[in-house]
Amino acid sequence: MLPNFAYSRPRKLTDAVAHLADAKNGRVHAGGTDLIGCLRDGIFKADTLVSISGLTDLHGIEETGDGGLRIGALATITQVADHPLVKERYAGLAQGASEVASPQLRNQGTIGGNLCQKPRCWYYRGEFHCLRKGGGACFAAEGDNTFHCLFGSDDVCHITHPSDTAPNLAALNATVHITGPEGKRTVAADAFHMPPSVDVQAETVLRPGEIVTAVTLPPPPKGLRSSYRKVRARRSWDFALAGVALALQFDGDTVRNGRVFLSGAAPVPWRSQPVEKAIIGKKLDDATIKKAAKASVEGAMPLAKNGYKIGLFQGAVAEELTKIAAG
């Protein structure tokens, strides 16, 4: 059922990195909720699994010296959703985390794994040797693309990025901390995911041997309100058909600054600058909200079966802006 692989559970980050870097097809094993399914279904090869659960430094959620927050890569989705500081200061992230999958999966899945999870395109997860698996064509382009993207496919691959935490981290200006064979580096959360035009077989910018160790959030700027709204085909245990992550700085009723990311929209968490443009410097009155909702689908390239998302995004964005305006 599963491929044959070597398995290790090192205690030191450097060992974990070394094991990974030495392997031909090394994979990090965090909570395993996504990894094991992929291996069972033969989605990718793996000859070495490196469990990171023994790396104690990767656990925990704590306030940083500058008043921000550090979330270890091994923090579970439940821990993120329930943490008092996350709920108080970064409500959008707490909401995003609480909308992930199901309680069991949130208890087992980690934030690091959530950022690095594989896409859910049913061709990719099925017995279809598509572009993303090294094949010659995208089956979704002409096939059943009900669940596929409106933006950013670059006419290459039409997945939507499955994570509900990533758009919120991106909106909240988070930073992803990475350790690899060449040492440490950081990447902005909004640059962590890989557009298909750059590399259709990768979902993240991680290089071989690299491990996500933590994400950090800057101290919440003044007037920050954040929120996440997710719409799915059934009410639980389902990925986003459309989602919107808002991180807006209010000055009274006026949006001074802000970032808006869409989920269920594109192969990466999709920054919607048209929406940002429509609301920054404005009061969120009905006319502004209407304009912003329209702007959310500016430049959308619907496929044969996902045109419903045009109306859906507008509705979700309008609803969420109305809600956030009310405080």
Partner: peptide, 17 residues
């Protein structure tokens, strides 16, 4: 071929539905 031959893509109602 069938595209949703698993319990995730073939959606049964959950407790919240």
């Amino acid at each position: 071929k069938m595209l949703n031959k698993n319990w995730h893509d073939y959606k049964l109602p959950t407790a919240l539905d």
